[in-house]
Amino acid sequence: MLNRDGQSRSTFWATVLPPTLWVAVFFLVPLGIVWLYSFGQNEGLTGISLTGTFANYVRAFDPLYLQIFAKSIFVAGLTTLLCLIIGFPVALAIVFADEKSRTWLLMLVMLPFWTNLLIRTYALIAVLRTEGFANFTLEWLWNNASGVMTFAGLAPLGDFQPLQLLYNNFAVVVGLVYVHLPFMVLPLYAALDRLDKSLMEASLDLGAGHLRTLFSIVVPLAMPGIVSGVIITFVPALGAYLTPDLLGGPDSQMIANVIERQFKRANDWPFGAALSFLLMYATFIAIAMRSYLTRGKAVDAHGI
């Protein structure tokens, strides 16, 4: 045990032990047990015997579960793409805002992020349900359009049929984008903020258009930030539980919902444990990809 500043041994232990023990006992041990359970099988009603079987992992590759995995990855990917498209101009606007409005814009982006996830999801339910605000607005537009058409001597449009906006995959993607947008905007902002604006001016001066400048100057230079934002958005979206549970229909289950069912209702802990660890490995792969893709690329506009 080296300690640099010649401090006493007791100081060292008093500093190191409490956090280390906590994370070991109340985090690593629980995860370790789940890991062990993933190689076990149910015995009787409550018992689990650790037989070292790989059956749970084999079962996870059943087409039914593979399809849910594929769907979760697709939904999380679509969410990430939409967040990138929606969030990029917002990050750009924050970078180009003056000092004072920048603080305000950043706060406006972060405030929903701090608001309770359940409350935000609930707010979306009120908007999307059949008698919600979205359908209410559509009905109003429909009736007015209908009125205009009667006025113009055409046949009216007929009765308004409310759209089914809730309890389907559409609602899940809207909900995930709504929740994860700040995850994308903040890293994008951090990367764009360090970008040397004179490079953009030079590009514009030399005759490139705004779009060309964006795609040939801004995007390549901000690539580490884009990669970070993509991963930081993708990872929690992949493991989302609440959004598909509350906004989705019977066919919009994601992997987290299947895990929850194994532990709470189906009472098949070993299989749930195997699924949890597959989700965790997928997460780690995504994070490793991020460090691989951004490696050596210090976010520095001058280091071209």
């Binding site: 080296l2 640099r4 929850e260």
Partner: peptide
Amino acid sequence: RFRFRFKGAIEGALALPIVVPEICMGVAM
């Protein structure tokens, strides 16, 4: 402040709760 054996491992363990999906941590608990 300190340099000691297994520091890297402890550092990694401390970063883990930030990246592990909530659902996995939930079932572990």
